[in-house]
Structures are given as structure tokens and as C-alpha cells.
Design a protein around this nucleic acid. Sequence first.
DNA 1: GACGATCATTGGATCGATCAAGGGGGAGGC
DNA 2: GCCTCCCCCTTGATCGATCCAATGATCGTC
Lengths: 347, 347
Amino acid sequence: MGRSDHRPGSQLPVTPTTLADVAERAGVSRQTVSNAVNNPDLLRPDTLERVRQTIAELGYSPNRAARNLRTRTSSLIGLRFTPAQEGTANAMMDRFVHSLVEASAEAGYHVLLFPSDDEDPVGGYDNLLRSTAVDAFVVTDTYLGNPQAAWLSQQRAPFVAFGRPWDDDEARHVWVDVDGAAGMRLATQHLIDRGHTRIAWIGWRKDSPIGEDRRSGWLSTMHANGLSTTGLASRVEDVVHSGAEAAAVLLDESEPTAFLCASDTLAMGVLHTLWIRQLAPGRDIAVVGFDDSQVAQVYPVGLTSVRQPLEDVAVEIVRSLRALLSHQPVESRGVLLEPTLAIRESS
Amino acid sequence: MGRSDHRPGSQLPVTPTTLADVAERAGVSRQTVSNAVNNPDLLRPDTLERVRQTIAELGYSPNRAARNLRTRTSSLIGLRFTPAQEGTANAMMDRFVHSLVEASAEAGYHVLLFPSDDEDPVGGYDNLLRSTAVDAFVVTDTYLGNPQAAWLSQQRAPFVAFGRPWDDDEARHVWVDVDGAAGMRLATQHLIDRGHTRIAWIGWRKDSPIGEDRRSGWLSTMHANGLSTTGLASRVEDVVHSGAEAAAVLLDESEPTAFLCASDTLAMGVLHTLWIRQLAPGRDIAVVGFDDSQVAQVYPVGLTSVRQPLEDVAVEIVRSLRALLSHQPVESRGVLLEPTLAIRESS
DNA sequence: GACGATCATTGGATCGATCAAGGGGGAGGC
DNA sequence: GCCTCCCCCTTGATCGATCCAATGATCGTC
């Protein structure tokens, strides 16, 4: 039998059991039953036992709506669900959402998804906030110019961001992020340890702070090891064929022996170019990506990739959220977590 | 300015506006405000206008908890969130969840995620049901021996399944599914049209009804075109290297010119074998997968793949759910949707 | 055995919405 | 003029939990 006794073979009563039902049956008042559920310490051990017994017998579970109304909470965390873009390999949302659901459940919260509306990016937040449908939000897209974090701050709505407030020095909200630069240092050092000296970088356009951060990890590690980076960097759009073209140009002009990419999508482009030129990834040329996407995992020649610790991110977010909601002083405004490197045949 | 007037520059009041606040300000009773929101037809046009004006001025939005308590509904749909398995390419959950969130929102519902517990697969459902936290469920894993659908049916809990009740003839619940056999007929015919006659099948083990269904699409189309299938079929585990091994054996023994796979994961295995043997996918040998995963989309040689119409599935599910919850007679117990074929360079 | 202090438990009010009846007023019919 | 009807709106009760203040039980103490 499962953890909770849900009595296979029995049906749920048409009208669910209420607190009053339990109270009557156990011969105590409603408040006592309420205390048995929420403040067991207040009851005498024998009373507690009797009430718990009755709760189990009747299969009672507090009505969420009534509790929410009285306590002015919902035990729900709102998350705007943005799916992975088609044609890219950036599918970390899936893993992150799962981790968040798990971590939230541990803390007694559920995750409520709401759709994204590009025309009115804060509309969904506003509705949920006004109707007190959620206790807090988790914000994921903290890219340049995204008004959500600032708007929520201004509304004094509790939220934690996954991602640093890159472009906003004024931001005072709580955030959790993964140290992309550290991940790239890890990857670069890995390649250097394998004997590579001419390691090329293929990243995003300069206006992406995330991309520039990752790039800095490559740059600093190269220089720290006394290696040159001139002519070895390229900045392109985050699509497969851009990665392929960049790799072709770099191969022709600078003869790198390894490629470090800001995303798995770009890495796939590199692999395409290698395939066309009959170069074997891992043996002739090393390739490393970022995100440890499914693509990296199932690609015939496994792609080495920087893996974000999304499980830890979720745990940390929920921890911050709880502190925020219980009005405890938050230890620190931001938390930065270290990624790991999933090493495969491509390096 | 956005669709809903959320007044940038203003803060949310500390205590949210209530129905009574609006009533007082508009000079009407609480019930009249309630009717303005839920049954506008009951009001005289000028009163309605006045109330609406006041609602807009105060930025009023009905308190969810109070409404839920009174109406005994929650406008929430529960979904057990199971992430994609690592090391496989089956990441349709991401796309499906997004579609479901969108379709639900259209109908005034939000999606509530709860975690999966393998030890107690119905525990999560039970809790939410007992505490009347959700109005209905969407069940996604209807594989062999999964007790969820049967358990929910027995509890008389409203739910719609994504997936047929393969192994349960007794099942009377509502479901929506994608016709995998039709998808494979499409794919097989596509390959035949391209001149292929020796088309091999790599699928899952025989105890997977989904796998057998997909296989039947290949089989029937081959036979309908007078083509032989002997020695051209293989049944393996759904992992990359199994697909690779199966492809190697088939190439040696039966010399197929095309491979049809039950999943993109297996197709990746096939591509691996082709790569090792220096065979060009699409030119020397055609390959087709199933699910149109990100892998199929970003693989250097785009992988042709059967694409499930998940957007339509979600819409259909929400439609059924609404009928179920409004106690309308459901037109049909099950709905079967046709997949499409995403044609790329591999075929 | 009376006393205040502490502990365990209780009854009434409340959260903010909707439901179910009931009331005021104008139009229309006799 | 009076009654009925209908439309529009209001009032009181209710959903099921928790908050708050108060009451009864238990205890040690003098």
C-alpha cells in the first residue's frame, strides 16, 4: 500500500469530508481538529491520536479554497511557461520545471503554469497577483529589457528570479543563477589538459550579457595559461547554420584544434562542418557545447557539454522563496551556482 | 499599453480590493457587482457601465480563494509532470505542456503541476482530489499497467487521458490520442514515393502496444504496395546504441535502402551506424524517426520525422474537459488525431 | 482547600465571494 | 384606482477553514 492511505476499492464521497465532520466524529471542536493538523503540539497526546485516527478513517483533507481564503495564501507558485524554441537545442526548461516541481512539493507548494503573452508580458502576472491566486512567482527570462522583474519589484510582489539582473544595477530582488563563466573555465581547462592550445570560441552577439559572460570564462582561462586568442573568436546568431559557417571560417583562417561553443545549438553547427570536411569530432577536432541538452546526449558522437545544476537551482529558489514569504531576512540577494562538465566522446 | 490595464507606475494596494469596496464606491450592492462580473445580462446597461468603470478604476479582480470556496471549483487542471528521460530524444512533454497551458487559458483554466512518485503513483492525485484543489486531471502516461486512469475512473474524478487505454477494454473514460499507425503509413508512403522498396523497421519490444501500433502502419503500407517485409524488421530497447546495432545487422543481412524508426532516439542510432560506415543519410540511405524532437531538428543532416499535433491534442483535451465539467454529454469517448510528416534531408 | 498560573479546548466571528429569496418600482391590464 | 407581473437590485445565509478571545480543566503552592 502506498504512503498515503487512499483505500483502493473505495470511492470518494460525493461531498468531501469537512473539518466539522471530523470534529463531530472525534467528539472535539472544529478548532481542535484544525490544531491537530496545523499545530499538533497544542494537543494532549491522547487527543491528538484520537483525532488523527478519525482523520485517517474519514480520509479527511483540508479544503484548499477555505484554507486559502482564511489564511490569505494559496501554496501556489506561479511560473510563466515558455517552451523551447523550435530549431534550437535549448531545452533546459523541461528539466528545470521538473526540478522546481519537486523542490516546491517538498516545501508544500505546487507550481501553477500560465501562458506567455508577448504583447502584454506582465498581464498574466497582474491577473494572478490581483486575484491572490499565487503566493509568489518564479521568473525565468531575465534577458535584456524584460520588464517582469522590475514590474514585480515595483508591485512589491514576492518573486525569485532564475537569472541575474544583468542590465539593471538598481535591482534589489532575490535571484539564483548559474555561473556560465565558471562553466567555460572548466571546459577550457579540460581542453587545455587534453593538450589543445588553439581553442576557438563561437558565441552569441555582443549584446547578450549571458554570452559575453560565458565568453569571458574562455578568454580568462586561455590567457591564464599563456595562450593566444587572436583570430580565434566568432560571434553569431544562435542557430545551427551560423555555427557551421563560423566553424568553417575559423578552420580556414586560424586552424584551431578545438571549438568551445556558447550553446549546444552552435556546437551542432560545428559538428556539421566537421562532418562535411570528413573530420572526426574528438579525434581530429574537439567540440564542447553548453546546456547538456538531449541533443548532446543522443548525438552519435556524444557531445561534451557544460551542464547547469538545475536541480540545485530549483532547491535554492525554493529556499529563497520560503524565506521571502516568511519575511525572514534573506541572507543574500543573489546565489551563483557552479555548473559541471559532462564529458563525452567529442573532446 | 497592454491588454489589461495594470497601470504602470502604481503599486498594488496592500490589501487587495474586494467586491464590497467596488459595491460601495459604485453605489450598488455586492451581488450586483458579482453579477456585473459573472452575469452582465442581468444588469441594466447604464448600471453595468458604472460598475465596470469602478472595477477598472480600483483594479478589482475577484479573490480566487473566495470564489473557489463558494462555487466548489478551482479553475485548475492537475497535470503530473514527468520530465523527459535523460539519454533519449523523447521531449514532447515540453511542447505538450505549453500547448495545454495555452488551450487551458483560453477556457479560463490554469495548469497545476505536481510531482510524480513512483512508489505511490496515485498519491498525488488523491491529495489534490481530496482537498478539492483541482477541477480535473490530464493523465499522460497510459502505458501498460498504469493504474492512474482506472483509479481516477473509480473515484469518479473528472479527467481526460492523452493516450488510448491500450490494455483495458473496460475503460470508459475520455481520451485523446495521436494515430501512430497513420503517421507511419504517411512515412512509409513517403519513402515508397521516393523510390524505396526495401524499407526496414526498427521498433520497440513486442510488449509495447504503442510500438506495435506504429509498426502496423509500416507493415500495412508495405503490403498494400506489394512490398516484402521479411527480414526487414527489428525490435529493440529504446536507446541509441540498440538502434545502431539493429541498423548494422539489418544492413549486413537485408540490404535495406531506408530505415523507419519508432522513435528519434532509435533513428539517432541508425545515423550513427551510417556515419561509421561512411554512408550519407538521405543520399545513400534514407532515415525517418518519430516525434520531431529537437534532435531531429538540429541534427546536422535534418532528420525526417513524424510530428504529433500536440497543439491540437491539447485543444481537444480542453474541449473534452469542459464538456465533462459542465456535465454535457460527451460526443465520443475517444478522439484520434492525425500526425504530420516533417520532411528533412535524411529522406 | 482556596488561589493564580498554565494547559487544553471551545464557540463565535471572519475571510470574500456566490446562492437563494425577497423587495421596490414602473408598465400594463382590468 | 388597483392589482399583477416583470425587471432590477438588495439582503441574509453560506461555503469550510482559521483567528481570536474566552472558558474549563489541571497543576503546584501556600
